[in-house]
Design a protein around this nucleic acid. Structure first.
Lengths: 248, 248
DNA sequence: CTTAGTTACGTACAACGTACGTAGTGCGCT
DNA sequence: AGCGCACTACGTACGTTGTACGTAACTAAG
């Protein structure tokens, strides 16, 4: 009988291979790769145990030998993508620039895997690659004399900004992948309602906000400003660093 | 035949009552209330069309007369909870304090409805009460001379901080409501793995972070600091306002 | 060699969202 | 008044999901 306990368990604590029995046909990496491939093509909702098993070329239930619960499959996916950072051996020494670069890299990765942002706000666990990522983030702050608690808070905030903003950018596109209509249609309908509501005069400031300019929004610029503000907020509490670099 | 189109639609644009036929047994508010009651008790995963219908005392499919898709039920829930703010008639004039108060109120509301944070990062639509909320947020910034685009970005950032942090605080508790084990068990198992991993020496800074102090974390204080940093970041770009009030 | 743990996988079940058909109801029209 | 149609109500049913369970084959440890 398969070892599928009704107790909480961390997949990373379970050995990938334990001597006895026939050798497994796949590795965890194979499975993570298959799941990510499916998500990239068909959206996160296309990631089902059946699909992943089919992609691997095995029976559905065989998958449960490797992945006790579907949530663990998600963790595998997050960890795999978290391994796509090509982290430098050592940070440059300019913590602000290093963290900003890292945040931009994270944003880029999440654009390649649009389902990642949604997953990251649903799965909270530590995994090998996420720990590696956090360790590197902390190493960027080595030069700063502050308790690690404070550094962790900053790292968490930067990560929060990245996932929040990228999720906002991408969720419509991701969601409509498993819907019978397009993201553009959805957006059009919602904007039509918003326009009607705004025209009612009940929300004058909202109306003014939407009347203003309204050229296409540069999402990366918005992200940049948000990120800069967070770093500014940290900066302003520790005098002696360069006060306010231009946003460019 | 029921009017359930395969086209995108905003539930708020559909009239709640349209003359003809027998009068509906429930209002949208009834349905939202029932769904929220279920979510409060059994977690978000307990909110199914069947459960909500049963709570209302009607057949499952009757619900589809009011709510064309399940997503719309979610929007109803978000809107209802967004109506729980008791927004003052007019902001006090101190935008920083007003926004902070609002953020704290939002955090408190999401603690009462632990599923709210997760829903808000999944549902992106404007609804009557969310628009009221945004309008009020903007009105807090009336005294500031800045383009509305900039104000909107600040409001979005504050909201982002709230949902991100509250979601982080609450997601484990929420998630384990539909799991056969407790949040404490889950946490214990994950911490055990983390401890073992940290002891390996591969993540020295992470290890230092967890070794440090480690009294119970005051989540509200963490939230406060994050919020303050965001407001600081906005502050630092517009000289002339009070530079840096104490975090309490 | 034995044996116990592992892999593989088909079957099966409960729960989900929801398409569809049918029956009943009452407003608005002529 | 009375016809008709839009609306409500709801049972049935389908496809899809996660996954519990049983069985058969396999292989390393004793």
């Amino acid at each position: 009988m398969a070892g599928r306990p009704a107790e909480p368990e961390v997949i990373w604590a379970r050995p990938e291979r334990s001597g006895r029995g026939p050798k497994p046909a796949f590795s965890r990496a194979d499975i993570a790769a298959a799941a990510c491939r499916i998500a990239d093509e068909g959206g996160l909702d296309a990631v089902t145990m059946r699909h992943v098993a089919a992609e691997l070329g095995c029976g559905t239930m065989s998958l449960y030998n490797y992945v006790p619960r579907k949530e663990d499959l998600y963790e595998l996916m997050v960890d795999r993508v978290s391994g796509e950072y090509d982290l430098p051996e050592k940070p440059s020494g300019d913590w602000r620039a290093d963290l900003a670069t890292l945040a931009h890299r994270a944003r880029a990765i999440m654009h390649v895997h649009p389902w990642m942002a949604r997953l990251m706000s649903a799965v909270y666990g530590f995994s090998p690659n996420t720990m590696r990522y956090i360790e590197y983030s902390l190493s960027c702050l080595d030069a700063i004399d502050a308790p690690y608690g404070e550094k962790m808070e900053l790292v968490a905030m930067v990560n929060g900004v990245v996932t929040t903003y990228v999720a906002n950018e991408l969720q419509t596109a991701e969601r409509t992948k498993s819907l019978p209509w397009s993201a553009e249609q959805e957006h059009a309908v919602r904007m039509a309602y918003l326009g009607r509501e705004i025209a009612s005069g009940r929300y004058p400031r909202l109306a003014a906000a939407f009347a203003e300019d309204s050229g296409p929004i540069d999402m990366e610029a918005v992200f940049d400003r948000a990120l800069a503000r967070v770093l500014d907020g940290f900066d302003s509490r520790r005098p002696g660093t360069s006060p306010r670099p231009e946003t460019s």
